[in-house]
Design a protein around this nucleic acid. Structure first.
Lengths: 236, 236
DNA sequence: CCGCCGCATTGACCCATGTCAACGTGAATG
DNA sequence: CATTCACGTTGACATGGGTCAATGCGGCGG
């Protein structure tokens, strides 16, 4: 039942031909630095539903997601969960930390991630400050996203949250209006990301569908049909 | 009425004798680098209630708060506000950005901040990577705080939010149990930070006072009298 | 092909928190 | 000293979204 098969292969990593290089932290590196990066990189595959990292574990690795979708979340002792982000290829995992991870990460779809030992990456950064620069810029983006999400969670209505979520996802994925967008996470994940319940997410999507803002071809895709109205519904 | 007197003096800044140096970004710098930092630093005072930066303005400066308390927040077009943080001396302002500030900052008390032109700071970072390192570590901390706040906003009850807020503030300020803690922000600010209304904050504080968890000597201070119960009430 | 099972939808009802309104209270002002 | 004003508290009531429960539905194993 628990597909915990997190098969892990060695350091056969070819950064130079990596599809996500332009957008990931490796993007700005000159060939020499890139070679060194490749030398310390490992690859890790995780099946949908399995964990990549766990809150509280020693934060030894930093990952760059290269394929699939990952959700990062925090839990309360009684099981309440807040998903703080859905990560797509190019995103970093394990950046925000002390000595231990401060959130857990679970694969939404099957994923592939590039693994770096934190200590190796730190060492490489001292020789190649542009790597650290890139990391800082990523962190700034994440911070901006986190603040937008705080506004959503603290002040938006259910309708505004769902609309903002769909718009944000479409923008990040570059999906155009009228084009179906994959929605790999389930309703429970969306609810835990938006600070709502499954039922409210479901009802809100149904209302939007009936109002002609979206089409729901099946439960793992959406098509935005009325971008202007969806924007208006998002509250900003 | 509008105390917009944001008097701004020149670059007479003495980083070497700065009280917050150990905790701010300047902490890790060797004397030479510190001298260069001082050379590009300016000082800025802002009266309580006045703005330091405004969302959407070009992000030319980065500040380190040296005295007082600052709140950073985002607004929705209809005026709903989410305060994303209360900053204390040592904290950075303006780190999360693209070309423009992505939040506004307003002084809660009279404040003093150290100002750096972003371009100057970027240039200095290329010579002194340890500065960038320090910035990255700060960004990581902010990200961790943001994620904790998302959990609070998305999943905690009003009582848990208020308890978490008081505990978090006490921890950051190093206030001990039984010792009065200044609460410079007003109830509206607390509400907008916790995603609640003024009334709910007020009622919740009253309930906690009646339950003997806290004392409210006046409206700008709290004393935590029962730390264990307050922790239990915070939900984690 | 059938039956099961996990997920999603829908409905009925409830409650934590928001809204609206009255009233305190203390600091600033004339 | 009286007045005002901003802020906070308290109360009564409304409601958005949560909870609980029934039903639908599509994919998968036997």
């Amino acid at each position: 039942m628990d597909r915990q098969q997190t098969h892990c292969c060695g350091a056969r990593v070819d950064c130079a031909n990596c599809g996500i290089r332009p957008i990931a932290i490796c993007g700005a590196l000159a060939p020499i630095a890139l070679g060194k990066l490749a030398a310390i990189a490992g690859s890790r595959r995780v099946d949908a539903g399995a964990q990549l990292i766990q809150e509280g574990e020693p934060a030894e690795d930093i990952f760059t997601l290269t394929e699939g979708m990952l959700k990062i979340y925090k839990l309360m002792p009684d099981g309440r969960r807040q998903i703080t982000g859905f990560l797509i290829p190019g995103d970093l995992v394990g950046l925000a930390y002390g000595d231990s991870y401060i959130y857990s990460a679970e694969a939404v779809t099957d994923i592939v991630a590039c693994r770096f030992r934190r200590s190796n990456l730190l060492a490489l950064m001292t020789d190649h400050p542009e790597l650290e620069h890139r990391l800082l810029s990523r962190a700034g983006n994440e911070l901006a996203a986190a603040q937008a999400q705080m506004l959503l969670l603290g002040r938006k209505t259910a309708r505004e949250r769902v609309a903002s979520f769909l718009l944000g996802l479409a923008e990040r994925r570059g999906t155009k209006t009228g084009e179906p967008m994959p929605l790999p996470m389930n309703r429970g994940d969306i609810a835990d990301f938006l600070g709502l319940t499954i039922e409210t997410v479901s009802r809100t999507l149904t209302l939007m569908r009936k109002a002609g803002l979206i089409i729901l071809p099946d439960k793992h895709s959406v098509t935005i049909t009325d971008l202007a109205s969806l924007r208006a519904a998002s509250g900003d």
